[in-house]
Simulated assay, not measured.
Amino acid sequence: MRHTVRAAGAAALLLASVGVAPSVASATPAADPAADCTPAVDEYGAPLPCEVRVEVLSPVCDADVPKLRYALTVVGAARDTVDVTWVNPDGEDVVQADQPLSGTVPWPGAVVDAGGRPVDWPGWRLEGGTWVQGDEYDWVRPEVTVRFDVNPAATVTVAYPPSSPVCLTAPPRSDVLAAGAEPGVGPGDGAGERSEVLAATGAQVAVLAAGAAGLVALGMGAVALRRRRQG
C-alpha cells in the first residue's frame, strides 16, 4: 500500500512539474523602433515624442558636383548628428554617417579630385576617353530614396539635380571636350558643354548681325533712289 501511495505521489508531482514548465517555442517581442531614443521633456516635465522633421530638402549642383542640401528638426532625441542613408533597392545602401543636422552631402557616385574638381558622375563611366552611360550607381537616378536616421528616422524621395549652362551634373560630350577644351582643363570643368553653348550663342549673334547689316543696306538704297527721283 505504501508503495502504491508513493508511486501515486510521484506521478502527481511529475504531472505538476510538467504543467508549470515554460514552453520552448516562446514568441519574441518586436523591437521598439524608438528604443535608442532619449526623449527630452517639456517645461512641465512630460516626455516629448521622438520625431524628425525634414525642413529643407533641395538637390543642387555645386561646382559641377551633384549634392543634396537638407535641414532637420529633431524633437525628443538627444542626438545632434544624423546618418544619411541612400537606399539601394537592389543592393547595398550607401551610408554617410555622423552628419550634422543641417548641411550638404554629395550624391553617391560623385567623385572629386584633391582640388575638389569632379572626375566622375553617378550613372556614367569613362571608356577609351568617351563617357558612356551605365555604372554601379545607376540606381541613384533619376530619383532615389533617402533616409535620415536620428532614431527616429524620416524617409523621403529626391530627384537627381539637372545640368544647366553654368553647372553640370553629367560629364560633357567627349568630342566637344576634345575639340574645344583648354590644355589642363578636365571634364569636370564643363569646358565641352559650355564651349558648345558659347559657340551656339556666337553663331546666333553672327546671324543677327548679318541681318541687321542687310536691313541697313536696303534702307540706304531706298534713300538714294528717292533722292534721284526728286532730282
Rank of each mutant, 00 (worst) to 15 (best):
T4K: 11
V5T: 15
A8Q: 14
G9H: 05
A10V: 12
A11H: 08
A12L: 14
L14N: 02
L14Q: 04
L14I: 05
V18C: 14
G19H: 12
A21H: 07
P22W: 01
S23L: 15
S23W: 13
S26L: 08
A27T: 09
T28F: 06
D32Q: 09
A34N: 12
P39F: 03
A40I: 09
A40S: 15
V41I: 11
E43W: 09
E43K: 13
E43G: 11
Y44Q: 13
Y44H: 13
Y44F: 10
A46H: 09
P47H: 09
C50R: 00
E51N: 12
C61K: 03
C61N: 04
A63K: 15
K67I: 08
Y70A: 08
Y70P: 02
A71F: 05
L72F: 11
G76F: 02
A78N: 14
R79L: 13
R79F: 06
V82W: 06
V82L: 14
V82P: 00
V84A: 02
P89Q: 10
D90H: 13
V94T: 15
V95Y: 06
Q96A: 12
A97R: 10
Q99E: 10
P100M: 11
L101C: 10
S102K: 13
S102W: 06
T104I: 13
V105A: 11
P106I: 14
P108C: 15
P108T: 12
G109Y: 00
V111H: 12
V112E: 09
G115P: 00
R117K: 10
V119P: 00
V119D: 00
W121F: 08
W121I: 02
L126D: 01
E127R: 00
E127H: 00
E127Q: 01
G129N: 06
G129E: 01
W131V: 01
V132M: 01
Q133F: 02
D135A: 05
P142W: 09
V144Q: 01
V146L: 01
V146T: 02
R147V: 09
R147M: 02
F148L: 08
D149F: 05
D149L: 05
N151E: 13
P152Y: 06
T155H: 02
V156D: 07
T157M: 07
P161D: 04
P161V: 10
S164Y: 03
P165V: 00
P165N: 04
R173E: 07
S174T: 12
S174H: 11
L177W: 02
A179Y: 07
E182T: 14
G184M: 11
P187K: 01
D189E: 14
A191E: 04
A191I: 00
S195H: 14
T201F: 11
A206G: 07
A206S: 15
L208P: 06
G211V: 09
A212G: 10
V216S: 15
V216A: 15
V216E: 13
A217K: 11
L218I: 13
L218C: 11
M220I: 15
L225R: 12
R226H: 06
R226F: 01
R226P: 00
R226I: 07
R229F: 05
R229M: 04
R229G: 09
Q230G: 01
